[in-house]
Design a protein around this nucleic acid. Structure first.
Lengths: 213, 213
DNA sequence: CCTACATTGTGATTGTGTTCACATTCACAT
DNA sequence: ATGTGAATGTGAACACAATCACAATGTAGG
């Protein structure tokens, strides 16, 4: 087994396949072709097949894919066959929004801990979790089986919290602050930077009178 | 002037340069080199130079870039020299978080309208804007100079709202729902899909024992 | 069993973005 | 005015991702 490199984009799409397949299953589809799946996801059939081919041969030529078994295979591949335990740091507006966003749980992600350093918030229950004191982050995360930490604290606090998370042995961080975190290579960091996305949109909508050559 | 294609990633980085430069300026730096800027942004100097080179020659060889003038040039390029007017649809948890996130304004984005269809919310003031009836989206957006619409409504409602926005002539949409929107080519759409990002992080942190060849 | 047809799986190709490496240019000291 | 050092700007090379196009392989029907 040669484990050729898998494009990182492929993983993102795999999740979207997983989501679409679950939906198709619910609607009673038993067999799906790469064409169908591609249409639902707004991409090309060849991309679907290539993506899946990195992990094996899941289809039947001339027929398509068995939806139920494919969805399970994908689940395994992207490690969503087990619940993913998430810790949330920072119960501001965004943090609260995340805690109340029940859809995550349906997709395999469960926020099992939440932290804030504001005494007036500690002890409160939001969604289904009790807000704990941020001072305990390290010991709490070290012990429990947390797969992923979401960082939703003010910009100025991110790097300090990130340091603590690193010490606590966190493996992945999803942050909502502009990505100034310089983390060691063995820790995965993704930043959601809305300003960057907005700037891109604005630029494109101004310029996309593209190359009328 | 040949308008060579500019990589879309470049635009995103341009915004980060803008941000970092503003910061360096505040700290009193007057001249920055591609090296400095690259360090701050955690990328390579060559990338910085290449990115800038798509738009002209802004530096002085042997010296570097004049921070103040570069920041202005970038501002113009990414159209942030004027305020960007943003409309927000959906005042749930995320919408509220965005309205209260004052940092956007510092970066040139201003949420000037907000809509919801819940009568109990209409008329309320959140942040600095009054929540309007979603029924008026079309006429309100058609008339005013909105550059960008943020869609923060429940998944099931997105495509319906998107249709309305399209009719209203919106040019760009930033959505928080998994991206099932198929929009005509002349409208820019970006989706923030946290589940996809989380899935990617989890996958990478499991697999990144990469190719120890 | 053989033919017609549908759809997969994939090597080859194209396209796009990043990085290298070096010639060019400027500031400054002598 | 000339040489030295520093940093830019960029064509070329590389790396990675998307797409094509077709051989391989299945089903179904006579």
């Amino acid at each position: 087994m040669i484990t050729k490199r898998v494009p990182s984009e492929t993983i993102g799409r795999l999740f979207r396949y997983f989501r679409s397949l679950s939906c198709l299953l619910r609607e009673g589809e038993e067999i799906v072709s790469s064409k169908t799946l591609a249409e639902v996801c707004h991409i090309k059939p060849a991309t679907v097949r290539k993506d899946l081919s990195y992990f094996g041969e899941f289809g039947t030529r001339g027929v398509g894919y068995d939806a139920a078994s494919l969805v399970n295979k994908i689940k395994k591949i992207i490690k969503l066959d087990k619940q993913i335990n998430v810790a949330l740091v920072g119960i501001g507006n965004i943090g609260r929004a995340l805690l109340k966003h029940s859809a995550f749980e349906l997709e395999g992600f469960k926020i099992v801990m939440a932290f804030d350093n504001n005494p007036s918030k500690i002890g409160d229950t939001v969604g289904n979790v009790i807000i704990e004191d941020a001072a305990n982050i390290r010991e709490r995360i070290e012990s429990s089986g947390i797969h992923l930490v979401i960082l939703a604290v003010p910009d100025y606090a991110t790097s300090k919290v990130a340091k603590v998370l690193q010490l606590a042995g966190a493996k992945s961080i999803l942050s909502f602050s502009p990505c100034g975190l310089s983390m060691p290579a063995d820790i995965q960091v993704t930043c959601i930077d809305l300003s960057v996305e907005m700037a891109r949109l604005v630029y494109n909508s101004c310029v996309d009178y593209r190359e009328k050559v």
